[in-house]
Design a protein around this nucleic acid. Structure first.
Lengths: 342, 342
DNA sequence: CTGAAAGCGCTTACAG
DNA sequence: CTGAAAGCGCTTACAG
């Protein structure tokens, strides 16, 4: 079923069918009614591919994220989605699982589809891909990318500030032996949070010991990291996690091992996903407003800064959220730490 | 940048450019190399819309879900996604938030895009929409739809069996006062689980009291339902939830109110999402294999039953998973129940 | 108010 | 091995 067929049945030209759909006010009441009748009765759907081909612009935005199973990314996607639907845009979602070949393939797919804009919320961006996007002259906006080149606006989270708040809070509770749990150690930009941790810890250099563990971005990853910590023999009083999903895995593993949180060890997350509050114990974490990020991303997709003006760098300030997974450093570990530090 | 432009730069015809991309083996080594060189250096991406227009078939499947924020739907999506990528398919995702106008719009969008197939995992399907899909002769497969007509294969979960296991288990623990927490009461097909509960409860008719509460499909919805239960004055010994997300909300609210689970009240979920296990207390629930559902959906998209053969109805059997959120009916409530029942 | 024409960017028989 | 032609389904100036 296509315009020609509908036109034939309605006894009009294809042009008129097209107009019935796009500019009905140009048609006489009679023709419009007849054509719409045929469309209805033939259950005709115009081919969006043909339409897009003509229009060259799509009312479709692409969204690329590293891990849609992590509520952090999901919330950003949903934030963009609700705005997009309100404005009559469609969204194309691509999920990379932190793999740069998947990212490259996704970006290419988006370019081939000629999306009207691209929101890229990934950790595994590299210079070559950015150059590629710049060359394609696509309207793009990033979030969480370490080095978004000079061409694209980036919605950044001030991780350093968030991490400093965590560390200040933990040290104020007497914690001197800490570990950081990340994921995907090989990814440079993941190190944004881990380096914030390491840098932050330096302020207390003479007093704080730290180690780093890493696994996948999932509850299972957090559990594995917790097992690795236990196996390592290092006995931290606090475990600082790269994000909430991983932290929840750590909490779970601790509970199964019978290690009390926060009595024996404190655990912190990052992001403040909804599950973090619902958990028991409630997770002390750093809130990053996905709403704000989504709003900025969407705004930029709709109203990009003019190409000749400078890109913008928008910084989101995270907030420390205290719950029940953190407490004073346990005496035992504290004395252990002291022993080692002296 | 288009084929013509590339062709000009390479000194060949558009046909040859197209062949360099699609059937390079038909070209001489020299031409192929030259053309690919130009493509590379001009950063040319073929227009997928034009390509799809010609091909008429897309290597794109559509996936429509009710609530992507619920890990149940997300896991199904991801299961399809990993298979799709393996086979070189792309996925178009649409999220309806249980709104049937959003569903209608999403389905229409998928039809207009001429997706190669459609996996519909929603609760809000109605007859008219099914008829529409049947008319469009689209390759579609459903999961969780109550009345998928006679045209389409449906991957069904035997909710009744799962619910019966839950009820048998709870009654064996002495529970006689139960409530069911659903969501979106207005949706007929949501009642699949709630009616499984109500039917199941009938077996114990003379002994079991039950009530039904309902709110949105989210942690917040579960919390609200828990508040409603408390406000109602009815004192159940067990709260049976439509799914895990809602159950986690109930658990959270109970903890905040200082009501011990399972000592004072037992709580069960449905689905067995990853967070359900990680939670504290671990949630007693009914496992539904999203892996299996995704596998069936994808298989059917790739190899649909022949149109003339009968549609298939595939039934997934759920498994009861016992964890820590359930226990013997509390004495206090039990005596209360007895009092009322006599 | 409506139709014939040209074109969006691509691809594949059909020739040669 | 390569090119000219026709067409995928739609849309919009351009006429009338």
């Amino acid at each position: 079923m296509n315009v020609r067929e509908v036109a034939k049945r309605a006894g009009v030209s294809p042009s008129t069918v097209s107009r019935a759909l796009n500019t009905p006010e140009l048609l006489s009441y009679r023709t419009r009614k007849r054509v719409l009748g045929v469309i209805e009765e033939a259950a005709y759907y115009p081919n969006a591919n043909a339409r897009a081909l003509f229009a060259a612009t799509n009312r479709t935005f692409g969204v690329v994220v590293s891990n849609i199973a992590n509520p952090y990314f999901l919330d950003i996607f949903r934030g963009i989605e609700s705005r997009a639907h309100e404005q009559g845009y469609e969204l194309l979602l691509a999920n990379t699982d932190y793999k740069s070949d998947r990212l490259a393939a996704s970006l290419r797919m988006m370019l081939e589809r000629r999306v009207a804009g691209l929101a890229v919320v990934v950790s595994e961006m590299d210079e070559a891909l950015i150059a590629q996007l710049a060359r394609a002259k696509i309207r793009a906006v990033f979030s969480g990318v370490d080095t978004p080149g000079t061409e694209f606006t980036n919605i950044k989270v001030n991780c350093r500030k968030g991490m400093d708040k965590v560390l200040a809070y933990l040290t104020s509770l007497g914690h001197r032996r800490m570990v950081f749990v990340g994921h995907h150690a090989s990814l440079e930009s993941i190190t944004e949070r881990s380096s914030a941790f390491l840098e932050g810890v330096k302020q207390f250099e003479s007093k704080v010991e730290s180690l780093t563990f890493t696994d996948s971005d999932s509850i299972a990853g957090g559990r594995q990291a917790a097992r690795d910590i236990i196996a390592s023999g290092f006995r931290p009083t606090a475990i600082v996690c790269v994000n909430d999903v991983v932290a929840l895995g750590v909490l779970k593993e601790m509970r199964e091992r019978g290690i009390a949180v926060p009595a024996e060890v404190s655990v912190t997350g990052f992001d403040d996903i909804e599950f973090a509050e619902a958990f028991s114990p409630g997770l002390t974490t750093v809130n990053i407003s996905r709403e704000q990020i989504a709003e900025h991303l969407f705004q930029h997709l709709c109203n990009p800064v003019r190409p000749d003006s400078n890109r913008r760098e928008i910084v989101i300030d995270p907030q420390l959220v205290l719950r029940e997974s953190t407490g004073p450093a346990s005496d035992f570990a504290q004395s252990g730490a002291t022993e080692l530090v002296e």
